[in-house]
Every structure is written in structure tokens, then in C-alpha cells.
Write a protein that binds this DNA or RNA. Sequence first.
DNA 1: TTATGCACCGATTGCTAG
DNA 2: CTAGCAATCGGTGCATAA
Length: 275
Amino acid sequence: MPRVFLVKKTSSTSGKKKWNEIPDCARGDIYTPVCIFTHHGHEECEHSPAELPICPSTPQSKTTQTHTQSHSSTAQLSCSAMQELSSHRPPFICSKNKMANANNEALNVSQTTSDSPFSCPICKKTFSLGRVMKRHLRTHSDLKRYSCEYCGKGFNDAFDLKRHVRTHTGVRPFKCTVCEKAFTQRCSLEAHLKKVHGVFQQYAYKERRDKLYVCEECGLTAQTHDSLCSHIQVKHPNSKIAKAKSKNRRRKAQDRGGSVSPCSPHSLSDADAGV
DNA sequence: TTATGCACCGATTGCTAG
DNA sequence: CTAGCAATCGGTGCATAA
């Protein structure tokens, strides 16, 4: 069975950079967490990850070719039927977790409680919020809303796509303060700090959600939107992000008939980037 | 005011390379 | 065996539509 979810192998197309061979210092300006909580109790402030979309994807067709079903139709399938469906899915759609969950869900059907009012009609998993359950239903569908322009892999979440694209672009926003090694995901950095250096990061929940503005073009990180926008305008004036930004400015100016922020958060959204 | 969608995030996990 | 990579998915904040 192909380990298709490991893009590292499957996307070894010509022209792809071998980022593992590139020193972190050569990848561009990257994020260095300054809020680390060590054994010594030293604590500083911290900011969190990436903001910019880079991979404009469309509701692509590649992932919808087989076994795509509407929620209404899938809702009529039993768990075993869903498992069978999964076994015939195209490689990158048949996710590991989906398969594992299918088994777990079958086992846990009897464990659902009445405390969670929203229950998945397919796997019977329960949720406290209706919108969470509704989104969960997507996991039973082969339809992927966002596709990677580099490898074609599909994702349900725009941010997941953005994070995935970093594996192609080499952007690694999370940098170890001890050894300079950089990572694409905060958890990878935290695991590294904990295991290798014995350093524990601790944040309040809010602190974790503070944004770090990452230029997906070069990996530069900024603490504010404005500084990031200035960077994009100066360094990457012809990038898709910059174009999407200017396009969004024009649109908003038309919609509101007034001045708009030169770089509002939504101006950098996936949708505005042509998704 | 409520419902909904989007975006971001962390926890978790399977896998590979060394 | 360990460290790191990459992916999935539920929780949550925010903006906007109804």
C-alpha cells in the first residue's frame, strides 16, 4: 500500500528543491520563537504561525472522480460501506486517519453519549457543535476543496493546504533558538525542543493563537500585517500574493466606495488569491 | 441575534531516514 | 530506536450573511 500521504516521496518531481540539503540559514528569514519556557523557568513572549496563503487552488476535479457522494447520499451508508469505499479511494484521498477512524468509529458507535447533541449520520461520532459535525461530514467525502498546485494533492482545509505547500517551497517559519534548525510546523519545533534540548514551551491558549505573519514566498516572518505587506510590495511585487492583494484592494474600494486598509487580513486569504 | 463559513491552530499519528 | 516530516481532524475565533 503506497504511503501516499508522504509527499516527500511522491512529489519528487524534477525541479523540486532538496530542502533537506539546504541549511536553514539559507532558506530565508524564519521564525524564531522567543517565548520558550525552559527548565529554568525563563519565559518570554511568543507568536504564532503563518498567515499568508500561497497556493491558489480551485475546487479541483482530480479528487472528485471516484466515489464522490453528496452528504445526503453518504449519510445513508453504513460504516462498513464507508470502509469499503475508502479501500477504493484514489491514493491521496484515502487518508491514514480516515482509515483508522473508520475502524475506531465502528467500535465506538456504542460509546456515543447524549451529552453531545450532534451525531454524524455515517459514523455516529458525536459533536458538541453542529458546525463541527457538519465539517466532520466532509471527512467522509472524497471531495477536496483545495488542491496543491505543485503536486495536486487535495485538502479540505485551506490552512492545511498552505502548510502543505511549505513542503514544496521550503518555507520553515519555526526556528529552534538553540540549534537554528527550522521546522514547518510548530509542533515539530516543540517536539524538537523538548526531546533534543529539554526545553519546554508554554503558552497561554491566547498566546498560541497570536499570529505570525509569514511570507510564503521567501519565508520571512513579520509581527504585523503592515510590515509583511510592505515586504511583499518591495520584495515580491509580481508575486501571486501581491497581485491578489491589489486585486482585493480594487474590489473593496468598489464595494465600499471608500478607502480600505492597504493590507487587510482578507486581502491575503486563499479566496482572494484565486482559490 | 443567530447561523454559517472561513481560517488558524494544536494534538495526534503514521511513516521515513539515520 | 529516535528525530523529524507530513498529514488528518476537532476546537475555536472572527467576519459576514440571514
